[in-house]
């Protein structure tokens, strides 16, 4: 029994080793694998963009690790090995300033703003910020503890609209689902969230003068072992093909 267990363990580790080798020594040319830490809101669009980048750049593969921007900063400060970082706000990028800059300053690659979403057909007839203050409206916002909630509060404060939300959801995606399910009459989410929902929600933009714009900076990390490839990836994010994908996903150009 004992020997069989040991045998299994050996076979298992051999498989892991082989799998590990395969990614490195694939074919004749050596492949460079880039590890990019990216904000969670980029998950869908970056997965697509990564495939496109790999098509255009032989010998380079991109592996993404998606998480909240704050978590990414914490991972970098704890020494997680990675080549590039893309955050959902400039403040987080500033917080890891010491870890970037050797291979170029951080560059904004996209912007995101808040929009009003309603269930299809907009049964409650909300089209602007003033409408969100109406009595009896089932308005759902993100909790003030998360960035989307803070932005929302800021926007409503500035517009002088007093609201009584029925719920403050723990993240902006939960706001979107409450609107999609038509449990809520209206909600404030990022333009990218609204774009991801397609026809499942109606979207009403908030004028730039009243809106808060979130910037997405990208930077090569000082600790990278592949500075050239990483810089090429960051620069590529600003190129036309990448920007087209970002725009389709609801982001605004930098």
């Amino acid at each position: 029994m004992k020997t069989r267990l040991l045998g299994c363990a050996a076979a298992l580790s051999a498989t892991v080793l082989l799998a590990g080798c395969a990614t490195d020594g694939d074919g004749d040319r050596a492949t460079t694998e880039l590890t990019v830490l990216a904000a969670a809101s980029l998950t869908d669009v970056f997965t697509e963009a990564g495939a496109l980048f790999e098509d255009e750049h032989d010998g380079v593969t991109v592996r993404f690790s998606f998480a909240g921007s704050q978590e990414l900063a914490a991972q970098i400060n704890q020494g997680a090995p990675a080549d590039a970082l893309v955050t959902a706000d400039t403040a987080t990028m500033e917080a890891v300033r010491a870890e970037t800059g050797d291979h170029g300053a951080p560059a904004v690659i996209a912007r995101n703003a808040l929009v009003i979403v309603t269930p299809p057909g907009n049964p409650a007839g909300v089209t602007d910020l003033a409408g969100l203050g109406r009595d009896g409206l089932r308005l759902v916002l993100a909790a003030p503890e998360v960035p989307a909630g803070r932005y929302g509060e800021e926007i409503l404060d500035r517009a002088g609209v007093t609201v009584t939300p029925v719920s403050q959801e723990p993240n902006v995606r939960a706001v979107l689902s409450k609107v999609r399910l038509a449990e809520a009459d209206a909600g404030l989410v990022y333009a990218t969230d609204a774009a991801s929902a397609g026809d499942a929600v109606d979207t009403f933009p908030i004028p730039a003068g009243q809106n808060v714009v979130a910037e997405y900076p990208a930077a090569v990390l000082n600790s990278t072992a592949h500075p050239d490839e990483a810089a090429a990836f960051v620069a590529w994010l600003g190129s036309a093909p990448a920007q087209e994908l970002l725009t389709d996903a609801g982001f605004a150009a930098p």
């Binding site: 759902v140 909790a143 029925v166 719920s167 403050q168 723990p170 939960a174 409450k178």
Partner: peptide
């Protein structure tokens, strides 16, 4: 709770 009832201090939090 958070999925069905949402999160509002004093009401569902």
């Amino acid at each position: 709770t958070i999925t069905f009832a949402g999160n509002l201090p004093g009401t569902t939090q």
